Simulated assay, not measured.
Amino acid sequence: MENSQKSWQIQTNDELKTADAYAPLIIRCNNGAAVRLSGVATVEDSVQNSRNAGMANSKPAILVMIRRAPDANIITTVDNIRAAMPELRASLPAEIQLDVAQDRSPTIRASVQRKSSSR
């Protein structure tokens, strides 16, 4: 969200996918009356965030953040993505490098491993 002086980000892990889904959200109550996002802003579909720049290994990058579905197993999700990487790389032009910049699953794997071995 932005005006001529400021910009704000709404970050959520909710299932809302379109601007229309966000429009009716109540952002505050004013003397008992609900103030909805659509009442104070033009709510439209656009890019996720046009003000972020991606960098990886000190080079400009396009960052793709992948999150598991709410009911998905994170380890299986990571394994499936890593298994798809060779095919994804093969489908890209040679000058484009596809890498994993961050993977938080090793600590999850270690935690699961500890719990399994302590039983």
Rank of each mutant, 00 (worst) to 15 (best):
residue 45 D to V: 07
residue 110 A to M: 12
residue 50 S to L: 07
residue 112 V to L: 11
residue 12 T to K: 02
residue 14 D to H: 04
residue 9 Q to M: 10
residue 109 R to V: 15
residue 99 D to T: 08
residue 10 I to G: 04
residue 10 I to D: 00
residue 110 A to P: 03
residue 81 I to L: 15
residue 16 L to F: 09
residue 99 D to Y: 00
residue 47 V to K: 03
residue 110 A to V: 01
residue 53 A to K: 15
residue 85 M to V: 10
residue 88 L to H: 10
residue 75 I to F: 02
residue 55 M to D: 02
residue 82 R to D: 06
residue 41 A to C: 13
residue 39 G to M: 14
residue 26 I to H: 04
residue 114 R to F: 14
residue 14 D to P: 00
residue 34 A to R: 09
residue 45 D to I: 04
residue 97 Q to S: 09
residue 101 A to W: 01
residue 92 L to Y: 15
residue 65 M to R: 14
residue 50 S to H: 05
residue 8 W to Q: 08
residue 91 S to Y: 05
residue 31 N to R: 07
residue 94 A to P: 01
residue 5 Q to W: 05
residue 55 M to K: 04
residue 32 G to R: 09
residue 30 N to R: 14
residue 65 M to Y: 12
residue 68 R to T: 13
residue 40 V to Y: 07
residue 52 N to H: 07
residue 51 R to V: 07
residue 58 S to K: 04
residue 21 A to K: 14
residue 95 E to I: 10
residue 34 A to I: 04
residue 18 T to I: 04
residue 100 V to N: 01
residue 105 S to V: 08
residue 91 S to W: 00
residue 86 P to F: 05
residue 69 A to K: 14
residue 16 L to G: 03
residue 78 V to W: 00
residue 111 S to H: 11
residue 55 M to E: 09
residue 40 V to D: 08
residue 6 K to M: 13
residue 80 N to G: 06
residue 14 D to C: 12
residue 47 V to H: 00
residue 54 G to Q: 03
residue 15 E to M: 05
residue 24 P to W: 09
residue 3 N to G: 07
residue 19 A to C: 10
residue 5 Q to S: 14
residue 47 V to D: 09
residue 107 T to S: 09
residue 101 A to F: 07
residue 40 V to S: 04
residue 50 S to I: 11
residue 109 R to W: 00
residue 90 A to W: 01
residue 110 A to Y: 08
residue 49 N to P: 00
residue 2 E to K: 11
residue 85 M to G: 03
residue 96 I to A: 08
residue 77 T to E: 06
residue 109 R to M: 12
residue 53 A to H: 09
residue 22 Y to N: 07
residue 3 N to V: 00
residue 29 C to G: 05
residue 22 Y to E: 02
residue 69 A to W: 10
residue 98 L to M: 02
residue 26 I to P: 03
residue 102 Q to E: 13
residue 118 S to A: 14
residue 51 R to I: 08
residue 69 A to N: 15
residue 50 S to N: 12
residue 41 A to I: 07
residue 52 N to F: 15
residue 51 R to W: 06
residue 8 W to A: 05
residue 83 A to H: 05
residue 54 G to Y: 06
residue 29 C to K: 15
residue 25 L to I: 08
residue 81 I to C: 00
residue 92 L to I: 12
residue 78 V to N: 12
residue 84 A to T: 00
residue 58 S to P: 00
residue 86 P to E: 07
residue 82 R to E: 06
residue 56 A to Q: 04
